[in-house]
């Protein structure tokens, strides 16, 4: 029974770490109505930056901040390609994602492991001072929970500001933003920057957790993000008091749980992406309600 409980804790921890990515995708897909494929590149980008900095002995907390800054830059690149160069939303993301694959390898050199002696955010002194009494598995859970909740609350607060309101407006009816004498392109770029900041943070935390960077770890992360956003928002669409950000975090945990169940039932690891794709299709069809705004995105 003990191992089952550990498995649950581990799955929830995974769900919470990846929830940061889901929050990022929530901004682009749900709020901006922009299917952003940059994620498949910016997620491993965060991991690559964190891995390199960790192995060089940089403070684990600082690695997260640097990863976020670099992720923001990736979002900026996609935004500029889309808005300033007039490339379609999907293609702009694909271009950045493709370029990032090489950049990630340049940053990390190759697949990179962080050895046991190196401190991560789960083992560094300040974390130990607070949660040192717990076994590592619970410490990971608590730290991940704190990260997910803190960033959820920051996002919630941001959405209620003037800038946040304008961001929500641009996905809903970009014409209105223009008549408010605001450049809708700049608002979109801002949204992509915030989104990829969170995605790269998620990648960095995954790197801390796994103590590794893998050049292919980004594959399928967009699909994961979209699936969790759709699961979360569809499940809670009739419960007005559940905020979108909360719904997305729960969606992420549920999704990781589904995958974990499939693996526990003996599903070969090679079939994982196929199951992911099928699961995503089912979710997409069941929750078929791409949001009904005044759509002017292409």
């Amino acid at each position: 029974m003990g191992s089952f409980f550990d498995l649950v804790v581990g799955t929830v921890t995974q769900g919470l770490i990846y929830a940061l990515l889901s929050l990022g995708v929530y901004i682009t897909y749900r709020i901006l109505d922009f299917p952003d494929l940059t994620v498949d590149g910016s997620f491993p980008l965060g991991a690559a930056v964190a891995a390199v900095l960790l192995t060089r002995g940089v403070s684990p907390y600082l690695t997260l901040i640097v990863a976020m800054a670099v992720g923001a830059l990736a979002g900026l690149v996609t935004g500029v390609i889309h808005v300033k160069l007039g490339v379609r939303d999907l293609l702009a993301g694909i271009i950045t994602m493709t370029g990032l694959f090489s950049i990630n390898l340049q940053i990390a050199g190759s697949n990179l492991a962080v050895d046991r002696a190196t401190d991560t955010i789960f083992t560094a002194a300040p974390t130990m001072a607070l949660f040192g009494a717990m076994p590592l598995i619970y410490r990971k859970l608590v730290v991940s929970l704190i990260l997910a909740v803190v960033f959820k609350l920051i996002l919630d607060a941001y959405f209620s500001t003037q800038s946040g309101l304008l961001l929500r407006a641009v996905g809903d009816n970009s014409t209105l933003v223009t008549t408010l004498a605001k450049d809708k392109g700049s608002v979109k770029i801002l949204g992509l920057v915030i989104s990829n900041t969170l995605v790269a943070l998620s990648g960095a935390v995954v790197c801390h957790e796994q103590r590794a960077f893998n050049s292919t770890m980004g594959t399928g992360q967009v699909v994961f993000g979209l699936a969790t956003v759709i699961i979360g928002t569809t499940l809670f669409k009739n419960l007005g008091f559940v905020k979108g950000t909360t719904a997305v975090i729960i969606g992420s945990i549920l999704y990781k749980a589904c995958i974990q169940v499939a693996i526990s039932l003996g599903l070969p690891a090679n079939l994982l992406k196929l199951i992911t794709a099928v699961l995503f299709l089912i979710i997409l069809v069941l929750g078929n309600r791409r949001k009904s705004g005044v759509n002017a995105n292409a």
């Binding site: 003037q162 309101l165 809903d172 005044v294």
Partner: peptide, 16 residues
């Protein structure tokens, strides 16, 4: 539909 944001409340629209 062009003059406002459907998923924002009337108050949010006016505030914008």
């Amino acid at each position: 539909a062009m003059g406002s944001c459907p998923n924002l409340t009337l108050l949010e629209n006016l505030s914008l």
